[in-house]
Design a protein around this nucleic acid. Sequence first.
DNA 1: TAGATTGTTAATCGATTAACAATC
DNA 2: TAGATTGTTAATCGATTAACAATC
Lengths: 220, 220
Amino acid sequence: MPESKPPRTLKHATLERLMHYYHYIGEQIAQQSMGTVSSSEIAKLLDTDDTVVRKDMAAIGVRGYPRVGFKADEVLAAIRDVLGFDNAYRAIIIGAGRLGSALASYPGFSRYGLRIDALLDSDPSRAGAIEGGVEVRPLDELESIIEAHNVGLAILTVPAEAAQPLADRMVNAGLRAIWNFAPTSLVVPSGVLVRHEHISVGLAELAYHLNRRDTKEASE
Amino acid sequence: MPESKPPRTLKHATLERLMHYYHYIGEQIAQQSMGTVSSSEIAKLLDTDDTVVRKDMAAIGVRGYPRVGFKADEVLAAIRDVLGFDNAYRAIIIGAGRLGSALASYPGFSRYGLRIDALLDSDPSRAGAIEGGVEVRPLDELESIIEAHNVGLAILTVPAEAAQPLADRMVNAGLRAIWNFAPTSLVVPSGVLVRHEHISVGLAELAYHLNRRDTKEASE
DNA sequence: TAGATTGTTAATCGATTAACAATC
DNA sequence: TAGATTGTTAATCGATTAACAATC
């Protein structure tokens, strides 16, 4: 067996860049069926350095071709492989409010290997409805759905006060990752991954820059 | 006039930490009316170093009290001031789909100084409806609303293909920042700030870690 | 006062950038 | 071949951490 590159852990920043490469190269291919792309082309568009791009490629095991660049399909395949887009993970959404329903209808999930099996809601009268092709189920089926479908990920779109108790129940049921859209932090055992999607961080940045602009203009 | 600290530009990472401090201290105050908090207390909860916290405090002009810590209300006031939470920026939401409607109903915006003046939609028959207390207006009023209300920020929740043309129109009308929830990148003049809220970045990280867990278990 | 905590400088670490030989 | 681009090592830069005097 040929020695395969040990895939050491990729950092958050690297994963984010990989996702950008994936989108950029995917779009380029669709538009102007080009087969190769150089590190400097990618770097220019993503506003980074070409050395960074080449190091990222090395990190995911893609080799380039001197004088030519990288083959677009090889790069896309490597990213799909590293990020597990072809693994068909099972996920559920908890909270069938507007955000939960919007996410249930989002066609992008399946492209990234995520399959939404159910949309749970605390209001039992909503059970049976279909949102974005996903059936709404009552919340007390939480544990049985997680176990029956081998669900790995829960997308939490509930009010802040409901989030922690639900997280506890899901962790007990064997869930391994939580994508938290509730505006509160969660405490979970170390084996469980929580990604907190905190909208106010973006807001802070926008507010700060809008503010700066004002003061700058005022003082000039 | 006493020499006031020149507020040099805060980095993205700093802004993100400030937002976390703001939430953490706000919650602590609400729960157990404590008046002071030490840098190491904050650091422990946010999983960072106490030196970082003290440097951030210095950056926003807050002085601590040796042996005591920082006064919670002074910290909160300084963050509000730096991030401009009390400035009442005008914003509009474009795209009254599920995500746009969900954001229109989000009570958090006003807490951060953002006032949603209108919700625009390309379907004229929706005009006049109320979503989360915000009136839906037809899209062709875009320019007039931006100018009449002195709108600084637009929240874009439209399909990918509609985003760039709308961005162009808004920039022409004098808009200064775009919060882009459409799954596509935008090209704007250098004076305009775009913050792209790209859901697939979070997805990539979750997929990667779920994947790693699997391979780890399998190889052990 | 003694001791806890700040404020700040110095040391370490990691990430970014520059340089350049290897390659086709 | 000549030249463009990769792959990788070395140099630089910035951010994180450690240390410690100043303070109340």
